[in-house]
Design a protein around this nucleic acid. Structure first.
Length: 278
DNA sequence: ATGGCGTGTCCAACACGA
């Protein structure tokens, strides 16, 4: 089975790409069983439940006006027979980090009862961008990271099979940056952010992408400007972190650059991890 | 050279992204 994350930069604009991508993966006999979306940029009443359900997928969304917004989409055919609607397919849902009371919708967690394997708890995450290390938004980012770490410590105690997927807005190492010298110390790569990423790893997660041999300069985001994609001037800031029990079952982790080549694309590409069922 | 492009919103000029 495969789980994925994709920052779509407006679900209203990108819904055709999401459906096309899911159907392409099915046609290749490599369906996406769960897809965590970020940057919906729409309120819950505007979420396209009907269109996605018609394509064969159930959704749980945590949206807000204009900014942020996250969702979890599951393939109906991949669910255990006990799951028939959102209430039975997304168990123990949590919106936002419990310690966070502000309006920013950046976290959605749910336990998914997949057929043929033990349930998996998924966290769809859109980490704050941070803007620049000397900004108020950067202070918010570091505070948010601290609260995330505290919350995930509890989640890991309660869920052996836990995956954290999404747009982390952190490039963990220089190998994840197209021009490390130009970016040294800047937002997305600065030491406090990378330390926070490492602290997440230290809780008991593995960066699924780095468990496998990968082509150099593999990225998940490219700036719309300056022909960033054509020059492969990108960063790897979208990640799938796996708890120890899921790490043992993970057999592959890749970035699919193809949707970034489509007309009017998101600036992010989807990232995918393959999990062996038990 | 801190812009460039894309999206959403108070529909026009700005906020925000990374």
């Amino acid at each position: 089975m495969r789980i994925a994350a994709w920052n779509v930069n407006s679900l209203k604009v990108r819904l055709p790409h999401v459906i096309r991508w899911l159907q392409d993966q099915e046609a290749k006999q490599q369906p996406i069983d769960a897809l965590c979306l970020q940057e919906l940029k729409l309120t819950d009443d505007k979420y396209p439940h009907q269109e996605l359900e018609a394509a064969g997928y159930l959704s749980l969304a945590a949206g807000q006006k204009t900014y942020n917004g996250v969702a979890i989409i599951v393939r109906k055919a991949a669910l255990a027979s006990i799951a028939s609607d959102a209430a039975t397919s997304f168990l123990k849902p949590i919106r936002n980090i419990p310690a966070n009371t502000d309006e920013q919708q950046r976290i959605l967690a749910a336990t998914i009862p997949f057929a043929g394997t033990k349930p998996i708890r998924l966290v769809s995450a859109y980490f704050p961008n941070g803007q620049s290390p000397d900004s108020d938004k950067f202070i918010y980012k570091l505070d948010w990271l601290s609260k995330l770490q505290t919350w995930l410590t509890e989640e890991l105690q309660q869920n052996q099979r836990l995956a954290l997927l999404g747009d982390f807005n952190i490039a963990p190492a220089d190998a994840d940056v197209h021009d490390p010298k130009a970016w040294e110390g800047q937002n997305l790569v600065s030491p406090p952010e990378r330390n926070a990423f490492q602290e997440l790893i230290n809780l008991g997660f593995s960066d699924s992408f780095r468990m496998f041999e990968q082509a150099p300069k593999t990225f998940s985001w490219w700036d719309y400007r300056m022909m960033g994609f054509r020059r492969n001037a990108g960063m790897r800031i979208d990640h799938i972190l796996l708890s120890e029990d899921l790490k043992e079952k993970c057999s592959a982790s890749v970035v699919d650059k193809e949707p970034r080549t489509w007309e009017q694309p998101s600036d992010h590409a989807p990232v995918i991890a393959t999990i062996q069922k038990t």
